[in-house]
């Protein structure tokens, strides 16, 4: 007698937490072969593991390298299960445009936030690094995004965050988007000052914040 569905999901979750890419793929194949619902296998198996990884990150047990490896294990499984998701189960995902504001040197933090949000079921559109304020607005309109997320690593570029909000105001579309900011030098106080809707100090907290912003 093989394992039960719950046991399989729990093993899938563990494979993600333990950063085991191959095992995650293998267990996901097992889920497909057993005829389990692919959406459920992601939701109750793989994604649970990623949630756990996020908690370990918050607790200072896991750091960036570990979180990235967990995400690889998650994605290895998702790639296998994705083709089997029944279309009616594919809920409409909330769209987020994310990018690093003009001038910044690197984008490790932004990539991490993107990865965590994708794993939590958001459709994340990455504008990359060195993104001018006007492009954040243009793309958010084009993509019909719910949230604009702006990251900055240097105080030099923090003014650009306020510019995004100013442009939204000028165009009279401020209420159509939630604006969230993050990054090394950014603080809650700064977010309040420029009138941003959300602030997160780390990648895992960003999930909670994004959920709140879209009312999930």
């Amino acid at each position: 007698m093989g394992k039960t569905k719950d046991e399989l999901y729990s093993e899938m979750s563990d494979a993600v937490v333990n950063m085991e890419e191959e095992l995650s793929a293998q267990l996901s194949n097992e889920a497909v072969e057993s005829g389990y619902d692919a959406f459920e296998a992601i939701d109750l198996g793989l994604a649970k593991g990623m949630e756990q990884a996020g908690r370990l990150f918050d607790d200072g047990e896991y750091f960036v390298p570990e979180l990235l490896m967990c995400a690889d294990a998650l994605n290895a499984g998702v790639e296998i299960l994705k083709p089997y998701i029944k279309t009616e189960r594919q809920e409409k995902k909330h769209k987020i445009v994310i990018g690093v504001i003009a001038g910044d040197t690197h984008d490790i933090g932004k990539n991490l936030v993107k990865l965590m949000l994708s794993s939590a079921g958001f459709d994340v559109i990455d504008l990359g690094r060195d993104v001018p304020p006007s492009v954040f607005v243009e793309r958010a309109v084009q993509e019909n995004a719910k949230i604009i997320m702006i990251s900055s690593l240097m105080t030099t570029t923090m003014d650009g965050m306020a510019d995004v909000i100013n442009i939204l105001n000028e165009k009279g579309i401020r209420n159509e988007f939630k604006v969230a900011i993050g990054g090394g030098p950014v603080s809650r106080r700064f977010a309040d000052q420029i009138g941003a809707d959300g602030y997160s100090s780390n990648a895992n907290q960003a999930i909670k914040m994004a959920n709140e912003l879209v009312g999930r």
Partner: peptide, 11 residues
């Protein structure tokens, strides 16, 4: 590439 690099510090 830093995202790959950080993982490779372990892997």
């Amino acid at each position: 590439d830093p995202m790959i690099f950080l993982k490779q510090l372990r892997r």
